[in-house]
Amino acid sequence: MHPQPNRRTTHAYGSPKYLLVYDRWGTAGRPVVLLHGLQYDRTMWWPVAADLADACTAIAVDLPGHGDSAPRDDYCTDRLTHDLAMLISRLDLRRAPILVGHGEAARVAERFAEKYATHAVIAVAGARLDEVPEAYRQFAVARPDPELAGAYRQRLPRQTTTPGQVDLGDCFPHLRDPAAFATLLKSVR
């Protein structure tokens, strides 16, 4: 039996001061950009992204100051959405992405959709980790940093409803059942 090739590749984009680190799965199909909530990182999307790879191009980004992405002096939402747009443009995906925002990152996805071509915005909540099966809890490990959280919350726009937004107020649906969540994303028209 031959080992399976690695389906996830890790990349970095930007200058050292504005470095964004992301993982990518798949090379074809509708692009899906996955944004973690505050105090998490891109690894929270690994289970669902692996299920998306057969039909979509999944991109899980570490937001600035999280995971392997560089911290910033200012967490301006306009700068962040611009950096995301440049990263997405650089990937030459050829189709408008679905943006999935977890927790506060849903507001970043909404702001992105106001300025750039977006197929859909999907917002998910994540307050009740006890509903996530034990095997997937390792992907939702919060790394509390009150200063970082405060800096983001100070700069995030208020929650609004964007045309085409689907709000899944469900807690960690992408970790409770990654395959079902991937199927839902694949069906977004």
Score class of each variant (00 low, 15 high):
residue 1 M to V: 13
residue 2 H to T: 13
residue 2 H to R: 12
residue 4 Q to N: 12
residue 5 P to N: 08
residue 5 P to G: 11
residue 8 R to S: 07
residue 9 T to K: 07
residue 10 T to E: 14
residue 11 H to S: 09
residue 11 H to A: 12
residue 12 A to I: 02
residue 12 A to S: 15
residue 13 Y to K: 05
residue 14 G to K: 00
residue 15 S to I: 01
residue 16 P to L: 04
residue 17 K to A: 15
residue 17 K to D: 15
residue 18 Y to G: 04
residue 18 Y to D: 02
residue 20 L to W: 01
residue 20 L to N: 07
residue 21 V to I: 15
residue 22 Y to A: 07
residue 23 D to M: 07
residue 25 W to L: 05
residue 25 W to K: 07
residue 26 G to Y: 06
residue 28 A to C: 10
residue 29 G to H: 00
residue 30 R to P: 10
residue 31 P to T: 05
residue 32 V to F: 01
residue 32 V to A: 07
residue 34 L to T: 07
residue 38 L to V: 09
residue 38 L to Y: 00
residue 39 Q to F: 08
residue 44 M to V: 15
residue 45 W to F: 13
residue 45 W to T: 14
residue 47 P to I: 03
residue 49 A to V: 06
residue 50 A to S: 11
residue 50 A to Y: 01
residue 54 D to M: 01
residue 56 C to I: 05
residue 56 C to A: 11
residue 57 T to A: 09
residue 59 I to C: 02
residue 61 V to A: 08
residue 62 D to I: 03
residue 63 L to P: 01
residue 64 P to D: 02
residue 68 D to Q: 08
residue 69 S to Q: 06
residue 71 P to E: 05
residue 74 D to V: 03
residue 76 C to K: 14
residue 78 D to A: 15
residue 79 R to G: 10
residue 79 R to S: 13
residue 79 R to F: 12
residue 80 L to E: 12
residue 83 D to K: 06
residue 86 M to H: 06
residue 89 S to L: 06
residue 92 D to M: 06
residue 93 L to H: 10
residue 94 R to P: 10
residue 94 R to V: 14
residue 96 A to D: 12
residue 100 V to C: 05
residue 101 G to V: 07
residue 102 H to A: 13
residue 104 E to F: 04
residue 105 A to M: 02
residue 108 V to D: 03
residue 108 V to W: 00
residue 109 A to W: 01
residue 109 A to E: 02
residue 110 E to S: 14
residue 111 R to E: 09
residue 111 R to Q: 06
residue 112 F to W: 03
residue 113 A to W: 00
residue 115 K to A: 12
residue 115 K to D: 06
residue 117 A to G: 15
residue 117 A to N: 06
residue 119 H to N: 10
residue 120 A to Y: 00
residue 123 A to P: 08
residue 125 A to L: 04
residue 125 A to R: 05
residue 126 G to N: 07
residue 127 A to G: 13
residue 127 A to T: 12
residue 128 R to K: 10
residue 130 D to T: 15
residue 130 D to P: 11
residue 130 D to G: 11
residue 133 P to M: 04
residue 133 P to A: 09
residue 134 E to L: 09
residue 134 E to C: 08
residue 136 Y to L: 02
residue 136 Y to C: 08
residue 137 R to W: 00
residue 138 Q to C: 13
residue 138 Q to L: 09
residue 139 F to Y: 13
residue 141 V to G: 06
residue 143 R to Q: 14
residue 143 R to A: 15
residue 143 R to M: 10
residue 144 P to G: 11
residue 144 P to L: 13
residue 145 D to L: 03
residue 145 D to T: 10
residue 146 P to W: 00
residue 148 L to D: 06
residue 149 A to P: 03
residue 153 R to N: 08
residue 153 R to Q: 14
residue 159 Q to W: 03
residue 159 Q to I: 13
residue 160 T to F: 01
residue 161 T to D: 08
residue 164 G to Q: 01
residue 164 G to L: 02
residue 165 Q to L: 08
residue 165 Q to P: 05
residue 166 V to A: 09
residue 167 D to C: 04
residue 169 G to M: 04
residue 170 D to G: 14
residue 171 C to N: 14
residue 174 H to R: 00
residue 175 L to F: 01
residue 176 R to L: 03
residue 177 D to K: 06
residue 180 A to N: 10
residue 182 A to Y: 15
residue 184 L to A: 10
residue 187 S to T: 13
